[in-house]
Protein backbone atom coordinates (compact mmCIF):
# COMPACT_ATOMS: atom_id res chain seq x y z
CA UNK A 1 0.00 0.00 0.00
CA UNK A 2 1.16 3.49 -0.77
CA UNK A 3 1.24 5.81 2.20
CA UNK A 4 2.08 9.50 2.09
CA UNK A 5 3.15 11.42 5.14
CA UNK A 6 5.68 13.91 6.35
CA UNK A 7 8.84 12.98 8.19
CA UNK A 8 11.01 15.64 9.75
CA UNK A 9 9.44 18.25 7.50
CA UNK A 10 9.95 16.23 4.34
CA UNK A 11 7.10 14.69 2.34
CA UNK A 12 7.56 10.97 1.83
CA UNK A 13 5.69 8.35 -0.08
CA UNK A 14 6.37 4.78 0.95
CA UNK A 15 5.13 1.45 -0.29
CA UNK A 16 4.38 -0.63 2.78
CA UNK A 17 2.63 -3.83 3.74
CA UNK A 18 -0.19 -3.43 6.26
CA UNK A 19 1.79 -5.28 8.89
CA UNK A 20 4.80 -2.99 8.75
CA UNK A 21 5.07 -0.92 11.90
CA UNK A 22 5.91 2.75 11.70
CA UNK A 23 9.17 1.90 13.49
CA UNK A 24 10.25 -0.57 10.81
CA UNK A 25 9.12 1.82 8.08
CA UNK A 26 11.20 4.68 9.46
CA UNK A 27 14.24 2.51 9.98
CA UNK A 28 14.27 0.26 6.99
CA UNK A 29 12.30 2.11 4.30
CA UNK A 30 13.36 5.67 5.13
CA UNK A 31 16.77 4.86 6.59
CA UNK A 32 16.04 6.87 9.74
CA UNK A 33 17.88 4.46 11.99
CA UNK A 34 18.01 6.82 14.94
CA UNK A 35 14.66 5.40 16.04
CA UNK A 36 15.55 2.22 17.90
CA UNK A 37 13.58 -0.94 18.49
CA UNK A 38 14.01 -2.46 21.92
CA UNK A 39 11.01 -4.70 22.45
CA UNK A 40 8.44 -4.55 19.64
CA UNK A 41 5.65 -4.86 22.17
CA UNK A 42 5.18 -1.34 23.42
CA UNK A 43 7.03 -1.42 26.73
CA UNK A 44 10.53 -0.04 26.35
CA UNK A 45 9.89 3.33 24.70
CA UNK A 46 13.09 3.29 22.61
CA UNK A 47 11.05 3.64 19.42
CA UNK A 48 9.18 6.75 20.56
CA UNK A 49 8.59 9.28 17.77
CA UNK A 50 6.41 12.36 17.64
CA UNK A 51 3.26 12.08 15.51
CA UNK A 52 1.26 15.29 15.06
CA UNK A 53 2.84 16.65 18.20
CA UNK A 54 2.22 13.59 20.36
CA UNK A 55 4.89 11.18 21.56
CA UNK A 56 3.88 7.68 20.47
CA UNK A 57 5.43 4.25 20.39
CA UNK A 58 6.21 3.62 16.75
CA UNK A 59 6.24 -0.15 17.27
CA UNK A 60 2.55 0.03 18.21
CA UNK A 61 1.56 2.10 15.21
CA UNK A 62 1.27 0.76 11.70
CA UNK A 63 3.01 2.62 8.94
CA UNK A 64 -0.32 2.80 7.09
CA UNK A 65 -1.74 4.66 10.07
CA UNK A 66 0.77 7.45 9.50
CA UNK A 67 -1.08 8.54 6.36
CA UNK A 68 -1.25 12.31 6.32
CA UNK A 69 0.62 12.65 9.60
CA UNK A 70 3.59 14.77 10.55
CA UNK A 71 6.22 12.52 12.06
CA UNK A 72 9.32 13.72 13.88
CA UNK A 73 12.21 11.41 14.78
CA UNK A 74 15.39 12.05 16.69
CA UNK A 75 17.04 13.05 13.43
CA UNK A 76 14.36 15.69 13.00
CA UNK A 77 15.07 17.09 16.44
CA UNK A 78 18.71 17.58 15.62
CA UNK A 79 20.40 20.61 14.13
CA UNK A 80 22.49 20.57 10.96
CA UNK A 81 25.46 20.68 13.25
CA UNK A 82 25.95 20.81 16.99
CA UNK A 83 23.53 19.87 19.71
CA UNK A 84 20.18 21.27 20.77
CA UNK A 85 19.79 22.49 24.35
CA UNK A 86 18.10 19.20 25.30
CA UNK A 87 20.88 17.18 23.71
CA UNK A 88 23.49 19.42 25.35
CA UNK A 89 21.86 18.85 28.71
CA UNK A 90 22.02 15.08 28.23
CA UNK A 91 25.72 15.34 27.44
CA UNK A 92 26.44 17.63 30.36
CA UNK A 93 24.56 15.48 32.88
CA UNK A 94 25.74 12.13 31.50
CA UNK A 95 22.16 11.25 30.70
CA UNK A 96 23.21 8.45 28.37
CA UNK A 97 25.67 5.59 28.30
CA UNK A 98 25.08 3.00 25.60
CA UNK A 99 22.83 5.43 23.73
CA UNK A 100 20.24 2.86 22.74
CA UNK A 101 17.31 4.29 24.70
CA UNK A 102 18.45 7.87 24.07
CA UNK A 103 16.46 8.68 20.92
CA UNK A 104 13.26 7.63 22.67
CA UNK A 105 14.16 9.69 25.71
CA UNK A 106 14.81 12.76 23.54
CA UNK A 107 11.63 12.48 21.49
CA UNK A 108 9.52 11.88 24.58
CA UNK A 109 11.03 14.81 26.43
CA UNK A 110 10.86 17.07 23.40
CA UNK A 111 7.15 16.38 23.03
CA UNK A 112 6.58 16.91 26.73
CA UNK A 113 8.61 20.08 27.14
CA UNK A 114 7.27 21.63 23.95
CA UNK A 115 3.81 21.31 25.40
CA UNK A 116 4.66 21.71 29.07
CA UNK A 117 7.87 23.71 29.40
CA UNK A 118 7.16 24.22 33.10
CA UNK A 119 6.77 20.48 33.76
CA UNK A 120 7.73 19.64 37.33
CA UNK A 121 10.39 17.11 38.22
CA UNK A 122 7.61 14.77 39.31
CA UNK A 123 5.83 15.17 35.99
CA UNK A 124 9.02 14.56 34.02
CA UNK A 125 9.81 11.49 36.08
CA UNK A 126 6.30 10.20 35.56
CA UNK A 127 6.45 10.70 31.79
CA UNK A 128 9.89 9.10 31.51
CA UNK A 129 8.63 6.07 33.44
CA UNK A 130 7.43 4.89 30.02
CA UNK A 131 11.00 4.73 28.69
CA UNK A 132 13.36 2.02 29.87
CA UNK A 133 17.04 2.74 30.39
CA UNK A 134 19.33 0.02 31.70
CA UNK A 135 22.52 2.07 32.03
CA UNK A 136 22.00 5.35 33.85
CA UNK A 137 19.57 4.69 36.67
CA UNK A 138 17.53 7.60 35.22
CA UNK A 139 18.65 10.20 37.74
CA UNK A 140 20.93 12.04 35.27
CA UNK A 141 18.21 11.88 32.61
CA UNK A 142 15.79 13.66 34.91
CA UNK A 143 18.49 16.21 35.77
CA UNK A 144 19.11 16.82 32.08
CA UNK A 145 15.42 17.31 31.40
CA UNK A 146 15.09 19.75 34.28
CA UNK A 147 18.08 21.64 32.96
CA UNK A 148 16.65 21.76 29.43
CA UNK A 149 13.34 23.27 30.52
CA UNK A 150 14.73 26.79 30.37
CA UNK A 151 15.33 26.52 26.62
CA UNK A 152 11.77 25.34 26.03
CA UNK A 153 10.40 28.08 28.24
CA UNK A 154 12.38 30.60 26.27
CA UNK A 155 11.25 29.14 22.95
CA UNK A 156 7.67 29.45 24.07
CA UNK A 157 8.25 33.04 25.20
CA UNK A 158 9.78 33.90 21.84
CA UNK A 159 6.72 32.74 19.96
Amino acid sequence: MKVDFEVNGRAVSVDVTPRMTLADCLRHELNLTGTHIGCEHGVCGACTVIVNGDAVRSCLMLAVQAKGAEVTTVEGLSLEEGLTPLQEAFKRHHGLQCGFCTPGMLTTLHALLSEEPEASEERIRDVISGNLCRCTGYIPIIEAAMDARAAYQQARGDK
Binding site: D54, A55, L60, T108, D126, S129, G130
Partner: peptide, 9 residues
Protein backbone atom coordinates in the same frame (compact mmCIF):
# COMPACT_ATOMS: atom_id res chain seq x y z
CA UNK B 1 -3.27 3.75 32.66
CA UNK B 2 0.09 2.72 31.22
CA UNK B 3 2.44 5.52 30.21
CA UNK B 4 2.58 8.87 28.44
CA UNK B 5 3.04 7.52 24.92
CA UNK B 6 0.38 4.84 25.32
CA UNK B 7 -2.04 7.44 26.65
CA UNK B 8 -1.54 9.39 23.43
CA UNK B 9 -3.04 6.57 21.38
Amino acid sequence: VAHYQIRNR
